[in-house]
Design a protein around this nucleic acid. Structure first.
Lengths: 335, 335
DNA sequence: GCCTCCAATGTTAGCGATAACATTTTGACT
DNA sequence: AGTCAAAATGTTATCGCTAACATTGGAGGC
């Protein structure tokens, strides 16, 4: 038994045609007689032939590989997003190489991009949660199809974003409509686009309603930072009756801080999160939050990249609009 | 300006040497005069030359790409695990292509494996949480370096596992030592190795202590299933004073079910989770749970694969031992 | 029946690296 | 200085595919 994998010539010989004909069959060329195609297909089957990606890549200078650069801070969104991207790419016969790095670490990001270029990816998606990444490294990526997922307000055809401002406004509007007037915000780190956009949405909605803006407490997306912000709120801002947290984990920390201090949510304080992670429904109380369609976003971004790579540029900018999920952590304030 | 990327011959010409010498410099061959090396390196730098992975793969029949097959049920562990793997592989100059599929769907798994073989990966890691994957598809993978991450009791050199049985026993022992005698278990789906191993550990620890074994409630890892199990426990097993949940999310559901029914945790019922996700510290009350080192596991698995692929087989089976993190959700029962 | 044209297939030449072998330096030792 | 092995470098073939051009064989027009 020959261990060596069959190549195109082996298939050609068995099928009694030239290797080029085999190539044509594989690539679905138009002018192939059905019976020839069948012979070739049978030979392929018999030999268990699998085309060599390496040889194809060498001949076409297209690797059919796509790079995805993710921030490694293991948050909820990116993981479902990358899975969706991978599925989409795979369905189109592409391969995804995802690289996770700390977006804060410029050298690491550069290194990761270099790594992907070394591989010879045909295009890239960069999930750019922080300002640092985008502008600095764009030059390095010149000439390469690139889609970014960010929270900027750009309407670039090569970017996809969730409208964080709209999402934040949704959350704050909900609180305002319940009758809250002292609404605080615990933000994410303000080096992050998303954190800034949500904070911006918070401010915009407040001012459009003529409500007083309270100091924004800066967190770091973690439950711990939410917890600490909660303690500070209790100590320094007793007038606050509602808090908009930049993400669900922060909201969880807040929930715990209030619970431990005997403050009832939502009777005394209302809390809204952001992301709608699976578990939030079972927080105590169930969390009112802003739902993001991460998977949909990832899928859309990958479609754009696939378009760009294959030349059929249907690329359009799409703002994914988040929506509010009202649960038990919000109520009208006790006057 | 020439758009075309420089190749090895361009570098050779600029450096005034043969292309083979360039190849030697790149691959760190021993017999190269330092000054020649410097000339070549300078030329590489000047041209911004990057070796073509495709050409190299074709010539060596090694792609330097590794496949990782993950279950797409987006749980906590796999994501930190794959990140750790990717980092480890990248440091060794390898590329990781991760494919996420529903492990339950046999056709999808086969398809994913086929996808990776098509790419020509040099080896694979399969995170095999369910029985279905492993035995069925091993034949398809013959001859390919393969590391599995599972929860079996095998001590195969090509597998890595977290000792779920030991972890479960830790949790149950903790409860028993607090004085609990009626300890219930809410398991994961019993098609999963991990779920079965944890249930097994639960049973083993109980019987080694001569404690009564209660019916195991089967959940599906979700907070919802934990919640529902909690309601059933309250209705049907009022004698239960402690619950060991198969994972943290299930524990969260339990926490909520008890809270909503006015049952105090830990005063009336103690709860232990499994995984030690970041947020568990801020559950209300803070969750006692079994910590798993997912990142360490992923890193170790990748090291094994790298060894296997590069021939330097130092491969050893390693059982990663989880450890208990005691927090506020467990206490001695009120007699 | 001959020519044209097009569909179907074949032939040859790279893509950019490494492998294997050939050749030229170099330097140590007589 | 002359010899010879070892070190350094060069040459040629090859990996498995696609691109580009070349060839063949009928179907249809006149």
């Amino acid at each position: 038994m020959s261990q060596k994998n069959a190549n195109m010539y082996d298939v050609a010989k068995l099928a009694g045609v030239s290797h080029q004909t085999v190539s044509r069959v594989i690539n679905g060329s138009a002018s192939i007689k059905p019976e020839t195609r069948d012979k070739v297909l049978a030979a392929i089957e018999e030999l268990g032939y699998r085309p060599s990606m390496a040889a194809r890549a060498l001949a076409t200078s297209k690797s059919r590989m796509l790079g995805v650069l993710v921030s490694d801070s293991a948050f909820f969104g990116p993981s479902s997003m990358t899975h969706a991207m991978e599925a989409e790419a795979r369905a189109a016969g592409y391969f995804v190489v995802a690289v996770a790095v700390d977006a804060q670490d410029g050298a690491a990001v550069l290194d990761a991009i270099e790594h992907l270029k070394k591989l010879g990816v045909d295009g890239m998606i960069i999930i750019a949660p922080q300002e640092s990444i985008l502008e600095t490294y764009r030059p390095v990526l010149l000439g390469m199809p690139l889609i970014t997922i960010d929270a900027t307000e750009s309407t670039d055809a090569s970017s996809v974003s969730i409208d964080n401002i709209a999402g934040a406004r949704l959350a704050v509007a909900h609180l305002a409509e319940l009758g809250h007037t002292k609404i605080a915000h615990v933000s994410g780190p303000n080096t992050w686009y998303e954190a800034k956009a949500r904070a911006r949405g918070y401010e915009l909605e407040l001012s459009s309603r003529g409500l007083q803006r309270l100091p924004i407490l800066e967190g770091d997306w973690s439950a711990r930072s939410g917890f600490e912000a909660g303690l500070k709120l209790i100590a320094d801002y007793p007038e606050v009756t509602a808090v908009f947290a930049a993400n669900d984990q922060t909201a969880l920390g807040l929930l715990t801080a209030f619970a431990q201090n005997g403050i009832d949510v939502p009777a005394q304080v209302s809390i809204v999160g952001f992301d709608n992670q699976d578990e939030t429904e079972f927080y105590n109380p169930a969390l009112t939050t802003v739902a993001q369609d991460f998977a949909g976003l990832g899928k859309h971004a990958m479609k754009l990249l696939l378009d760009a790579v294959s030349g059929t540029s249907l690329a359009t900018h799409e703002d994914v609009v988040p929506k509010l999920v009202v649960r038990a952590s919000t109520a009208s304030p006790n006057k």
